[in-house]
């Protein structure tokens, strides 16, 4: 039979009222309040011809370790639910029109986040025969996340500049 003494319960009780173990993160760079979405940014992710390297990193940014969700960023299933579009990849010929339609389907005001070197018009596949013009809707993204692929920490940091949290 297990005897649970009061002294053993004490640390448990204390943990209810003490500060969390994790440190509070410093405020993200950029203007206070982020991009003006009130601390919550819903993003539609479009893979416009990525090698899936960026996708792995995005998945990991929204995973339990980095947990971008706690800063108010969220991936949603339809551009109609979104505040912005998170684009990865070089924008291939096949994906140019769907990407344009997705951007068109997001209500204004919206943000465009270009994730990874490919989406920024550089990287190993830039200028390939299947790549549409790099001067598409991604010519001037609101947030650029460089790297091939960018790590989850970089993605989380970039999303925090949007949410302002």
């Amino acid at each position: 039979m297990v005897t649970l003494r009061f002294m053993q319960l004490l640390p448990l009780l204390r943990s209810l009222f003490s500060r969390p173990v994790t440190e509070r993160l410093p405020r993200p760079p950029g203007p206070r309040g982020g991009a003006g979405f009130g601390g919550s940014v819903q993003l539609r992710h479009v893979d416009a011809g990525s090698c899936n390297g960026c996708e792995l990193e995005i998945a990991s940014a929204f995973g339990p370790v980095y947990d971008a969700g706690r800063f108010g960023a969220r991936l949603v299933a339809s551009p109609r639910h979104a505040d912005g579009v998170l684009v990865t990849g070089v924008v291939t010929r096949n994906m140019a029109v769907p990407l344009g339609k997705t951007l068109d389907a997001v209500p204004e005001p919206r943000v465009i986040v270009a994730c990874g070197d490919c989406a920024l018009g550089r990287g190993p596949f830039g200028g390939g025969y299947g790549v549409a013009s790099s001067q598409g809707p991604l010519a001037a993204p609101d947030v650029a996340i460089p790297g091939c692929p960018p790590g989850p920490a970089a993605i989380t940091q970039a999303l925090r500049t949007l949410t302002g949290r």
Partner: peptide
Amino acid sequence: PAGGRAGAGARRAEAW
């Protein structure tokens, strides 16, 4: 307009 982008009223877009 919020967020610095021009959002003049409603915009008609194609059905998703």
